[in-house]
Lab assay of single mutants.
Amino acid sequence: GLTEEQKQEIREAFDLFDTDGSGTIDAKELKVAMRALGFEPKKEEIKKMISEIDKDGSGTIDFEEFLTMMTA
């Protein structure tokens, strides 16, 4: 499992990506986040990433899903 410290770091990354503070990361926010990390993702790639992570089919990534992605 994760230490509380690791969870906190992932939470901070999540909050950075969640620019509108909605508690979820949408495609637009993910794209901005990827760019910040030096990637140039295409729209299809973003969609694919979200569909792989987005277990509940909401079209957005919540913290639990993000946590799973970061620790996979």
Score class of each variant (00 low, 15 high):
G1L: 09
G1V: 11
L2V: 06
L2D: 02
L2S: 03
L2K: 04
T3W: 04
T3H: 04
T3N: 06
T3C: 09
T3F: 03
E4G: 05
E4S: 10
E4C: 13
E5T: 10
E5N: 08
E5S: 09
E5I: 12
Q6S: 06
Q6E: 08
Q6A: 07
K7P: 02
K7Q: 05
K7C: 11
Q8N: 09
Q8T: 08
Q8L: 08
E9D: 08
I10V: 05
I10Y: 13
R11F: 04
R11I: 02
R11T: 01
R11P: 00
R11M: 03
E12L: 14
E12V: 12
E12T: 14
A13I: 14
A13P: 00
A13K: 10
F14N: 01
F14R: 00
F14L: 01
F14M: 01
F14T: 00
D15T: 12
D15M: 14
D15F: 10
D15Q: 13
L16E: 04
F17P: 01
F17C: 11
D18V: 04
D18Y: 03
D18A: 05
D18E: 01
T19W: 10
T19A: 08
T19V: 08
D20A: 03
D20R: 05
G21I: 02
G21W: 04
G21H: 13
S22W: 03
S22L: 03
G23W: 03
G23S: 03
T24F: 13
I25E: 00
I25F: 02
I25Q: 00
I25S: 00
I25H: 00
D26R: 08
A27D: 04
K28M: 10
E29C: 15
K31H: 13
K31Y: 15
K31L: 15
K31E: 15
K31C: 15
K31T: 14
V32I: 12
V32Y: 15
A33Q: 01
A33H: 02
A33Y: 06
M34I: 05
M34E: 01
M34G: 00
M34N: 00
M34L: 12
M34H: 01
R35N: 05
A36H: 12
A36R: 14
A36Y: 14
L37N: 02
L37S: 02
G38T: 02
G38L: 02
F39S: 02
F39E: 01
E40K: 15
E40M: 14
E40D: 14
P41E: 04
P41N: 07
P41L: 15
P41R: 07
K43G: 14
K43P: 15
E44T: 07
E44F: 06
E44V: 06
E44I: 06
E45F: 14
E45C: 15
I46K: 01
K47G: 06
K48Y: 04
K48P: 03
M49C: 12
M49Q: 03
M49A: 04
M49D: 02
I50A: 04
I50P: 01
S51M: 08
S51I: 06
E52N: 11
I53W: 15
I53Q: 04
D54T: 12
K55H: 08
D56K: 12
D56T: 10
D56F: 08
D56N: 12
G57A: 07
G59I: 06
G59N: 04
T60R: 10
I61A: 01
I61P: 00
D62A: 07
D62F: 05
D62Y: 06
D62Q: 06
D62V: 04
F63L: 04
F63G: 00
E64G: 07
E64S: 08
E64T: 09
F66V: 03
F66R: 00
L67H: 01
L67K: 02
T68I: 11
T68Y: 12
T68N: 11
M69R: 04
M70S: 01
M70H: 02
M70P: 00
T71V: 12
A72D: 06
